[in-house]
Design a protein around this nucleic acid. Structure first.
Length: 911
RNA sequence: GCCCGGAUGGCGGAAUUGGUAGACGCGCUGGUCUCAAACACCAGUGGCAGCAAUGCUGUGCCGGUUCGAUCCCGGCUCCGGGUACCA
């Protein structure tokens, strides 16, 4: 009956289609996919609508990739397919959809390649982008390619530099909890009176971006500085595996801790996985406590400590300062000088590995000096130990060995006094006595003891923890030697790298010491062409080799030198979601109206490895831009979802040695080493070059088509879990697509007229389930529902044309090429990308009867079909009369009968 | 060590979050088609016992709450991820 439409189709569509109709029994995915990819590209089907009046907008974003030389692996399409399904679904739901893709293309591999070959990094970068683009297009992903961005494009990084200027020119108003332009910064009079230089110094100390000496990890092998997070716990460089060392270098830093409170509070209202929110909270690491000043015996000055437990001051029997503490030298007495110096020397040479290894065995050395415990005026020794970190708190602690395990270990080792000040009344008698005697550490709460002093007039004995803390803080405050304080783990962000292939800082250092930034209209500051990309010996970036670019002279003849550091890779990815809104705008970073319309990002999908850093940095920049009135939302990413990693099968010997996949053969479901013949275990491991178990999407697409790849990636399991790749699984979904295609492309299977009620019910069940599953990103069960429907339709043998069309619409977000092809074969001439998502009718889903499971004491014994409307009483009556019930009762009377309408019948029998 | 996830057939996973455990797919077994194979199609498939009807058993282990537990509570074991002395 669809012959008439076929004729129309033949007349309106291209020659290829005639072929496909003749041979429509076969699912020729190669031809189909090529045709529709071409159609979408030529018709700009997925161009983002310009109309900003549609109140339903949806900004759907992938974490854009670093275009590595290896090309795509099957992990990439997982997230991309998920956002694509969501985007296609939202378009059909009538939303304006913004769904862009781009490249996070600055990075070390291209630079290393440049060092080796002398080719400009942009050449290899662009080549890699081309590969990625081709591969991504072959997956039929519905990106608006007119919005493609590349972080290495001067038209893009001009605005990255522009944002840096804004960060530099912003200070954080603590009272308003808001970033403001430095032009609005009030400068105290005692500073203005000291002259311009001091004012400049003051302003610089408030800027969000500052230039200062920083102790950084230096990788002698890569000749670059590594961020803390790039240094692994064993003291090696994440990128190259070589040992790193400490070095002092002038660096750009960003004062992200000023935004700690805002970043922390903002997390609460985000629709993000709870685990990721927790990780961000822990990273920010807010803790409340107090700062307490300790006088030093026989010396001017004081040691300030940060403690979360000021209430335990009476138990503080010694102090520890970090090796890097600035009072360290002064506190060391003549007798102890040799020992301390030796210890300090050892500490600076220590890598993280040493520190971690030695963690089990605490080290430290006595300075010879004593401090005075303010609550009881007792002399307590001051020690130096590397278990105290200079970067956290004040770099000094008061040690309360009775109630802190680290302090306890240290005190035991060095035989320092342990005074219990909290009675562990909940502990067992024997344990309690040990604790009271200072033989065991107690970190739980308890009633204070030994916590009063007549001379200082303080007494917290008998109080609980909360009251004790409050009283001590108020006592410290009155004395002017302490106050409550909130401390964060979050540290200043080291924001420069000694590399070529990054955004240049728009900064000039003048010979007189002044630092100036370029004006907006001087941007972008381009990277110079170089002959050699090797970094300078001293740790300077390769940019220092380019004298022509490097040296500048101003109109008055003053000489200056450009900043040779470049920005880290985070810079470009911190704000790219904003540029996608208006990527071709040369006048503005983006149009304000467009930003207001599209922001925030409604769905952001990417790997969990970016859970903390990328998302935290990005949120920080966004909040600054919000404070400056540049963006309209306080948070950038409203809903976040992390896809799980895709692993692959790998093989290992009985001894546990990994065997490369090309040395493995399968025989009767078992695996053997092709050379040694040893039987191997199949395990699941990360894809890696060394195991040769990396799966390339190109190979999958060639064999089964992009629709199958997409479907399998989604069918493997829930989006957020780690799951192993298994090619056999691709075969499964390929089979499903083939069955669906053959069934729906065969005219004899389609008819006009009323639909079979069972098919109708199945169809509407599918529409409902697929819609809700897509909203909740549960694609695996949506696909399963489509399979169930096709199984039903094939069994029935025939469906109406309307049913076929409806099914194709539901299928289309998942397998868009095949859906377009079928849509076309069913007689439609336009793309189905904007066809309305079908509505389901609850009426068709209604059941007349329900097959009740009847259980006895919770064990299901048989089922009985009863009308849904039947009352509880009637149900009980019928069930009790049933022969099978009598059999299972075995003569005894039921003590209780539970009927949950539409669910279950449970008969309780007491023996 | 601490924090966060998780454990369901031979395998990936499903179960309206307290109501018929194992949907859907893979694999396997048998059959149809074929000279044969592949493809495709049909049937079966948690384990144990039985020719079968059927029965027993079963969601990492032990215990609890409940008429009823994969789901809630307590205690373990193992696996994965994060983190590294954060005062």
């Amino acid at each position: 009956m669809i012959f008439a439409k076929d004729c129309l189709l033949l007349a309106t569509y291209n020659q290829d289609n005639i072929l496909s109709i003749k041979n429509n029994m076969d699912y020729n995915f190669g031809e189909i996919e090529k045709r529709w990819q071409k159609y979408w590209e030529e018709n700009k089907t997925f161009k983002t609508p310009d109309d900003l009046t549609n109140p339903n907008k949806c900004y759907i974003l992938d974490m854009f990739p670093y275009p590595s030389g290896a090309g795509l692996h099957v992990g990439h399409p997982e997230g991309y397919t998920a956002t694509d399904i969501f985007s296609r679904y939202k378009r059909m739901k009538g939303f304006n959809v913004l769904h862009p893709m781009g490249w996070d293309a600055f990075g070390l591999p291209a630079e290393q390649y440049a060092i080796q070959t002398g080719t400009h990094p942009s050449i290899i970068t662009n080549k890699n982008c081309d590969t990625f683009r081709r591969q991504i297009k072959e997956l039929g992903l519905s990106y608006d390619w007119d919005r493609e961005i590349n972080t290495t494009d001067p038209k893009y990084f001009k605005w990255t530099q522009w944002i840096f200027l804004r960060l530099y020119n912003t200070w954080f108003d603590d009272k308003l909890q808001k970033g403001r332009p430095v032009s609005e910064l009030p400068v105290p009079e005692n500073i203005t009176s000291l002259g311009d230089k001091e004012v400049r110094k003051y302003v610089d100390s408030k800027r969000l971006a500052y230039y200062d000496n920083a102790q950084v990890w230096w990788c002698p092998h890569c000749r670059i500085v590594c961020a803390n997070e790039e240094v692994l716990t064993d003291g090696s460089h994440e990128k190259c595996g070589n040992r790193v060392e400490k070095k002092n270098l002038k660096q750009w830093m960003l004062r992200i801790p000023l935004y700690a409170e805002r970043l922390l509070k903002g997390i609460d209202n985000l629709d993000w996985p709870e685990g990721i929110k927790d990780m961000q909270r822990n990273w920010i690491g807010r803790s409340t406590g107090a700062e307490v000043d300790f006088q030093i015996e026989g010396m001017e000055g004081k040691i300030t400590v940060f403690t979360t437990r000021p209430d335990t001051l009476f138990g503080a029997t010694y102090m520890v300062i970090a090796p890097e503490h600035n009072l360290c030298k002064r506190l060391t007495t003549f007798d102890n000088k040799a020992g301390v110096e030796e210890y300090l020397m050892a500490a600076t040479l220590k890598s993280d590995l040493d520190r971690t290894d030695l963690a089990k065995d605490k080290t430290g050395v006595f300075t010879g000096s004593y401090a005075i415990n303010p609550v009881n005026n007792k002399r307590i020794p001051v020690w130096v130990a590397d278990y105290v970190l200079t970067a956290y708190g004040t770099g000094a602690i008061m040690a309360v060995p009775a109630h802190d395990t680290r302090d306890f270990e240290f005190a035991q080792k060095f035989d320092l006094p342990i005074v219990c000040i909290q009675d562990p009344d909940v502990a067992e008698t024997e344990q309690r006595e040990r604790i009271l005697a200072g033989e065991e550490c107690w970190t739980e709460d308890g009633k204070y003891i030994n916590s009063s002093d007549k001379d200082t007039g303080i007494d917290i004995n008998g109080l609980n923890k909360e009251a004790g803390i409050a009283q001590i803080i108020s006592w410290l405050g009155n004395k002017g030697i302490g106050k409550s304080r909130i401390n964060y783990k979050l540290r200043d962000w080291l924001f420069s790298r000694q590399r070529y292939w990054g955004e240049p800082f728009p900064v000039i250092h003048w010979e007189d010491g002044e630092v100036t930034l370029l004006d907006d209209n001087e941007l972008p500051l381009m990277l110079p062409e170089l002959e050699k990309y090797l970094p300078g010996e001293s740790g300077e970036s390769p940019l220092s080799n380019s004298t022509e670019w490097l040296l500048v002279t101003d109109s008055k003849g003053r000489k200056g030198r450009r900043e040779t550091n470049t920005m880290p890779q985070w810079a470009g990815s911190c704000w790219y979601y904003l540029r996608f809104i208006d990527p071709l705008n040369d006048e503005l970073i983006f149009d304000k109206e467009k930003e207001k319309y599209w922001m925030p990002v409604d769905l952001y999908i990417g790997g969990a490895e970016h859970a903390v850093l990328h998302l935290l940095y990005s949120r920080f920049w966004h909040k600054v831009l919000f404070d400056l009135g540049i963006v309209s939302t306080d948070e950038p990413y409203q809903r976040l979802f992390n896809q799980g990693m895709i692993l692959a099968f790998a093989y290992e010997t009985q001894a546990g040695a990994k065997v490369s996949v090309d040395l493995v053969e399968e025989r009767e479901g078992k695996y053997f080493h092709t050379e040694t013949g040893e039987q191997l275990r199949q395990i699941v491991a990360k894809m890696s070059k060394s195991l040769k178990n990396v799966v390339n999407p190109d190979d999958v697409t060639k064999k089964y088509g992009a629709d199958s790849l997409r479907l399998y990636e989604m069918f493997m399991g829930p989006l957020d879990v780690t799951k192993p790749w298994d090619e056999k699984g691709v075969k499964g979904v390929f089979g499903f697509l083939g069955r669906a295609y053959r069934f729906l492309s065969e005219k004899d299977n389609l008819f006009d007229g009323p639909e079979d009620p069972e098919v109708l019910k199945g169809l509407h069940h599918l529409i409902k389930k697929a819609g809700s599953d897509i909203e909740h990103l549960r694609f695996n069960t949506a696909i399963s529902a489509m399979m169930i429907f096709i199984n039903l339709a094939t069994k029935k043998g025939k469906v109406t044309l309307t049913t076929a069309e409806t099914f194709v619409k539901v299928l289309s977000p998942f397998a868009p090429h095949m859906a377009e092809e079928l849509w076309n074969l069913l007689g439609n001439v336009k793309t189905l990308a904007y066809e309305p998502w079908p509505a389901y009718n609850e009426e068709f889903l209604k059941e007349e009867t329900f097959n009740y499971p009847v259980s006895f004491n919770g064990k299901m014994r048989f089922t009985i079909e009863l009308p849904v409307s039947m009352s509880r009483e009637e149900i009980i009556k019928i069930v009790l009369e049933d022969e099978r019930t009598k059999k299972w009762l075995g003569g005894s009377a039921p003590s209780n009968i539970i009927v949950v309408p539409g669910r279950i019948i449970n008969i309780v029998v007491k023996n």
